[in-house]
Amino acid sequence: MASRPNARAAERVSPQREDDARRSEPSSPAVSLRGVRVVYRRGAKQGGLVALDDTNLQIGRYEFVSLLGPSGCGKTTLLKVIGGLIGPTEGTVEIFGGSPEEALRNRMFGFVFQEPNLLPWRNAMSNAELLAEVIDRKSVDRARIAALLKAVGLEAFGESFPRQLSGGMRQRVGIVRALAFDPKILLMDEPFAAVDALTRDTLAEVLLEVWGGIRPVIFVTHSIEEAVFLSDRVVVMTTRPGRVLEEIPIDLPRPRTRDTRDTAEFTEIRRRVRQAVDRAQGNRGS
């Protein structure tokens, strides 16, 4: 299961199935994209902007997958296609065997964006309840939310308002908000890009703890280090048009801790991912 540089889309599908079988998971993946192409209408004179082209991707039911690549490689577009917020121009997307729109209607997605966007008139607890409340006001699981707040280290801050919290704390509330209604899939778009480097490392550890390996996570990032630390697999994307260049499995043992970053294995995998990213950037304009 070494990296597969410049693998053809068709070749990529079958090794992935082996991968799933090896993990003795149910054979159907949580997320499956085949031949996905997304064209934005902007610049329609040139036939539109191709944000994503010929993208094939399978994500297992318990898999943490990072999408890594230069700006404009369609990482965010890919995330929104999976999350049913953008419809693909071509190709098929399946979420647990159904369409993304169906999955969205069934509230399967927990989104976390770069900015936590907490509501300033609600305290941390109430902000964490927002999405659960929108789904069903009567069945908000307050005990679960309180437990999640505790898990991310905010048990003493449930009553605090966003302006009383640091940037990292706000993003923790954002993560709890996304997990509050027990979504089937967690979708994260550069969630730690706006916090400082030290907080960023801590948040990554917190995220692994609350994730617990019980649901797939799709994590968009610019950080090689972060992608390697968090993921079971790193998907390196290239730009113009955005497409998957390589998929690199990360075989580091779990649970991963602060010390994981200092191991020789970590350094070695990080080096391979960096080389893949270099190739992705070298591919520009090809």
Partner: peptide, 27 residues
């Protein structure tokens, strides 16, 4: 209102009136 916040609510299939009462009006 921040477009990402609206998108976040859309991701859990929020109704327009929910977006109005919970976010737009207090904002």
């Amino acid at each position: 209102v921040d477009a990402n916040l609206i998108e976040l609510l859309r991701s859990v299939n929020a109704r327009p009136w929910q977006v109005f009462w919970k976010v737009r009006l207090p904002h």
